[in-house]
Design a protein around this nucleic acid. Sequence first.
DNA 1: GACGGCCGTGAAGCGCCCGACCATCGCCGA
DNA 2: TCGGCGATGGTCGGGCGCTTCACGGCCGTC
Lengths: 340, 340
Amino acid sequence: MKRPTIADIAGRAGVSRSAVSFALNDQPGVSEETRQRVLAVASELGWRPHSAARALRGGRAGAIGLALQRPARLLGAEPFTMELISGLESELSARSCGLNLQVVEDTEAEIATYRRWWAEHRVDGVIVLNLRDDDPRVGVLEDLHLPAVVIGGPAGTGTLPSIWSQDASGMTDVIEYLAALGHRRLAHVSGDPNMRHIVDRADALREVCRLRGLPEPLTVRADYSDEDSAQATRRLLAAPDRPTAIIYHTDLTAVTGLEVALEMGLSVPDELSLVAFNDSRLCRLVNPKLTALAHDIPGRGAQAARMLFAAIEGGPGADSQPAEPYRLLPRGSTGVYRTR
Amino acid sequence: MKRPTIADIAGRAGVSRSAVSFALNDQPGVSEETRQRVLAVASELGWRPHSAARALRGGRAGAIGLALQRPARLLGAEPFTMELISGLESELSARSCGLNLQVVEDTEAEIATYRRWWAEHRVDGVIVLNLRDDDPRVGVLEDLHLPAVVIGGPAGTGTLPSIWSQDASGMTDVIEYLAALGHRRLAHVSGDPNMRHIVDRADALREVCRLRGLPEPLTVRADYSDEDSAQATRRLLAAPDRPTAIIYHTDLTAVTGLEVALEMGLSVPDELSLVAFNDSRLCRLVNPKLTALAHDIPGRGAQAARMLFAAIEGGPGADSQPAEPYRLLPRGSTGVYRTR
DNA sequence: GACGGCCGTGAAGCGCCCGACCATCGCCGA
DNA sequence: TCGGCGATGGTCGGGCGCTTCACGGCCGTC
């Protein structure tokens, strides 16, 4: 089977290659009659533009890039990435634009990937995840003039458009909810402090507690691993003045924390309330179900894709904007705190 | 910033473009001295081949394709896909080959995607997931002569190489394990009966039970959704002659089943044992932890990638082969059945 | 002096797009 | 009546970056 080219269509329709090109691209320069004839022949032959030829000619690569900086074992556990991808795809496929995926080890490798994509003309733009403080990726992308949309921010994205989650306000909602339930001693299992949104949450937590006259909240770090998450919760619960509510930076971490709490003989939510950032099915699979801060991740993916297209086309619509706010979904893991 | 081309290198090195091309591609036709000089200039300029130009010239697209036929909300919940991708990537990035991802609605859309990829020269080959009976994708890929590796089989893959999981033997292991624990009334929550591996498991279950003189196992279907999984388990446990052990086609389904069983007041594993196909972190997050049949998914992805490369290059190494067998990981959800 | 290796150059061409050009026709003013 | 002109509908050909085939000097050898 041979792929038909424009020349084949030209031959069959009895016109020149240019005429075919004009007809296929809705350009002026051919009569309506010729255009229809060309289109008919093209669809009969099943012609599709050769993406490489188009890209070479100086046009679009017809694909965007997504570099995932995650070890293999985590990529699976975390629903975030896949939900984001499916959201991206919903917009991409509507414009028959491809998605190039690359799993990278670290930031350095990610930057190398951007440079390679740029040099090889593989993508028209990229989506950047997990913004960090002084993120070197921003400068590189700006230098390359490679269109990009950052998921994160709003600070530190340079000239790149971004879509930022309202982490401080999400955290505030949680604290107010917990405070209303009578909790005073809060704790926070936090993530990588280099991540912008992680810092935003921690800052908000301290700030709101101070304003409301609550004691300084305990904070410990945990990565996504089982052991680390369990250890973090154990440390918090072993503290002399044990917290009555714990806020986790991830559903995964929270679920592990729940197991640990139950293991240690605590009753949830009677003696301990738990809240997770990032809702997912996981939160509903455990018992009691986890109270969570939910986000429309596929929706955000779609929004990011639209912004990226706007950035690529250089038109309007590529301005930074907030994602829709977190929604607090109270479930069985949080309850009224009764002083004993 | 301008991307350097071969002509730029040629100018700087004082040789013709052809010579540069030979040097960069390790072809004979240039002296060792010239080659070194060209390579030095190339790396100084940061030259990278323009992927579109190469593809146009008739070479490789430098990417493989993966079409995911899953609704958005499932893609996130299921760790399988991401683990597979990270396995694929480990091989791909070693050869600096890209991965093209596309989320599709149904088989028809998937086939359309293959045709488009082929016509647009976007990918050099594809990975096919979830083989079904009389799968139309096989014929299409054969017709297009688009190299492909099927994850599934071994039957029904036509001339396409495949890597097949040993589902019957996995199922047999489970039954023997459960039988050894004293279970006789087994049940099976099964998946889409059009999927080859699902049928293999069901067949093995019936066959082995017959051979061992166990009663005909109950079988119900459930998709990946919460409601469906819960409903399936409820139906089984409400049956007059309740099973003492249930085998689930997915960790997700099994976790939901566990919740339902606990809700219904059954003690796991004292009154009911549960086993899941597909181990994942999910199985260790619940209480009791789920006994599961584990698979090295990233490993299989890597193997599939290697086979696909072999198929693309037309060399040897593209023969169908079994994946490594399932490993049964007994955990807290299975135990001795004591007649009451 | 014919011949074969070795290095290197020139040019064609992959499929597509687009700027330059050209033929035809209708219309207008001289 | 006829030349000039603009609009319309089309053709020609170059070039994007890269590979590769055909060829052409140049040297050493029989």
